[in-house]
Simulated assay, not measured.
Amino acid sequence: MAKQQVRKAETQKSLLSAASRSFRSKGYAGVGVDGIARAAGATSGAFYSHLGSKDGAFLAALELGLDEVIETVPDYQRRYNSNWPEAFARYYLGSTHRRDLACGCAMTALSPDVVRSNDETRELYEHKMKTIAELIAKGLEGESDDEKLNKAWAFLSILIGALMTSRAMASEDQADAVASAAFTSAMTAVGHE
Rank of each mutant, 00 (worst) to 15 (best):
Q4D: 13
Q5R: 13
K8E: 14
K8V: 09
A9M: 10
K13A: 15
S14F: 02
L16A: 03
S17D: 04
S17K: 15
A18S: 05
A18P: 04
A19T: 03
A19W: 02
S20H: 03
S22F: 03
S25G: 09
S25V: 04
V31E: 02
G32V: 09
G32I: 10
V33Q: 12
D34P: 09
G35F: 08
I36K: 00
R38P: 01
A39V: 04
A39T: 01
A40M: 00
G41E: 15
T43V: 01
T43R: 11
A46H: 08
A46K: 14
S53H: 04
S53I: 10
K54V: 12
K54M: 14
G56V: 05
A57G: 01
A60C: 05
E63G: 14
D67Y: 13
E71I: 11
Q77W: 06
Q77D: 06
Q77E: 02
Y80K: 01
Y80I: 07
Y80L: 06
N81E: 15
S82K: 07
S82V: 05
N83F: 06
W84G: 00
P85V: 00
P85Y: 00
A87K: 11
H97A: 14
R98W: 00
D100I: 04
L101Y: 12
L101E: 03
C103S: 15
C103Y: 14
G104C: 07
A106Q: 04
A106Y: 02
A109N: 08
D113Y: 09
V114I: 07
V115N: 01
S117A: 12
R122V: 07
E123F: 08
Y125G: 00
E126C: 06
E126H: 13
E126M: 08
H127P: 00
T131D: 10
I132E: 00
L135W: 02
A137I: 08
K138Q: 15
K138A: 14
L140Y: 03
E141L: 13
S144V: 07
D145L: 13
D145A: 11
L149W: 02
L149H: 06
N150G: 11
N150D: 07
A152D: 10
W153L: 06
W153T: 01
L156Q: 11
S157C: 12
I160D: 00
I160V: 15
I160C: 11
A162E: 06
L163E: 07
S166M: 07
A170V: 13
A170K: 15
S171W: 12
D173E: 15
D173S: 14
D173G: 09
A175H: 04
A175Y: 05
D176F: 06
A179Y: 04
A179K: 12
A182E: 01
F183R: 09
F183W: 07
M187Q: 05
E193A: 10
